Amino acid sequence: MKEKPKNVLGTELQSCCFDPLTGFYRDGFCQTSDEDLGTHIVCAVMTDEFLKYSKSKGNDLSTPIPEWHFPGLKAGDKWCLCILRWLEAEESGIAPNIVLEATHEKALEYTDFEVLLEFKY
């Protein structure tokens, strides 16, 4: 039996969001694999400020893309973000809060737990 993925707290990875359906695999979880080149492992709670920031960086998360079954995100939605984009936003002072229970343990390979804890939702 395959071991269940863990979160940054060392417990079983919880779902991030089913509506809108998030995750690299669109299964509601911030799971990852070698196929996930963006490493979508941070369960973040969107803010208007972050959505504008992401759009300015070339990743428009607020505009719906119906052919991809993507509704477009709004403030308050939870979404599995790429760890590097989240860290970039953190350095810019506009990182959204995160759900630790739904953030994959792989995030600890990129930043310290204390940094993540500062943004606990």
Rank of each mutant, 00 (worst) to 15 (best):
C16T: 06
H40Y: 14
C80R: 09
T63D: 00
F18Y: 12
V42R: 02
K2E: 13
K120G: 00
P64K: 09
W79G: 00
E3K: 15
W86R: 02
F113D: 01
K57P: 01
G72Q: 10
E118N: 13
K106E: 14
V42P: 03
F50G: 01
H104Q: 06
C30L: 11
D48L: 08
Y53N: 09
T32G: 04
V45S: 05
K106W: 01
P5A: 05
T11A: 12
L9P: 00
K6S: 13
L21Y: 06
S62M: 15
V115D: 08
W68V: 00
V99Q: 14
L116S: 06
V45N: 01
V115A: 07
D48V: 09
E118W: 11
P71W: 02
L116A: 01
E88H: 13
E101F: 10
L116G: 05
T22Q: 11
H40K: 15
C43N: 09
P66I: 02
F70W: 14
T103G: 04
K120W: 00
L117I: 01
H69N: 13
L73G: 11
K120N: 12
L9R: 06
K6G: 04
H69S: 12
V42M: 15
L73V: 09
D60S: 02
D27Q: 03
S92K: 15
I83Q: 11
Q14W: 02
Q31A: 05
L100F: 05
F29Y: 13
L51Y: 02
T11I: 00
F29L: 05
H104Y: 07
R26W: 03
L100Y: 07
S33I: 03
S54W: 03
C80S: 09
K52D: 10
T22S: 15
C80H: 08
E101P: 01
T11M: 06
D36L: 12
P66Y: 03
G28S: 05
S15G: 11
P71R: 01
L73C: 11
L81P: 07
C82R: 03
W86T: 07
F70Q: 00
N7H: 12
Y25L: 14
L21N: 02
A95R: 12
E114I: 08
E35M: 13
T47A: 03
P66R: 12
S62I: 13
L117D: 10
T103W: 14
T11R: 14
D48T: 14
K120I: 06
S15N: 02
E109W: 09
H69E: 13
A89S: 12
Y25C: 05
Q14T: 08
A89E: 10
T47V: 07
S33A: 13
